[in-house]
Amino acid sequence: MIDISLTVNGERVSACVLPRTHLVDFLREELCLTGAHLGCEHGVCGACTVRLDGEIVRGCLVLAVQADGSVVETVEGLSDSGEIADLQQAFIDRNALQCGFCTPGMLIASQDLLKAGGVPSREEIREHLSGNYCRCTGYHAIVDAVEATAKAREAAR
């Protein structure tokens, strides 16, 4: 077991973890933050997408020990801070989620694109989300929601 300390959603967290525990299992099982989901555990589906030191990562491809000293943000944190409130509302308005299992990862990946500013094309949105699997929606509504949010943010600048 290895001692780690990190910041998760703005809170200082100290824990003792097995080296083999990946970041998502740590978040879900140790911190009871179940917003990041396990969809494949081999880095393909994007359901476990979280933010690590400001960049999006696959939570299943990062060990908890590797996050020692880092800043981790999950969908719970981004919700509480209000950072993605408009994007979440756009997803709701557009019914851009059905079962919702991909949604936390999809929102975090979308926000990563939107943070860059401007209004990305539909192709750019699709490309940026190309590592996030959704079995329910067929993606069209998700692209709509991201596009609408980009336009609204651009108009508000």
């Binding site: 880095g43 994007g46 997408t49 690590l52 960049e55 999006i56 990562v57 696959r58 491809l61 990062v62 990946a109 990563d112 694109l113 940026h128 190309s130 590592g131």
Partner: peptide, 9 residues
């Protein structure tokens, strides 16, 4: 190379 969430690491 892969996707944004992998290129970051």
């Amino acid at each position: 190379v892969a996707h944004a969430a992998i290129r970051s690491r």
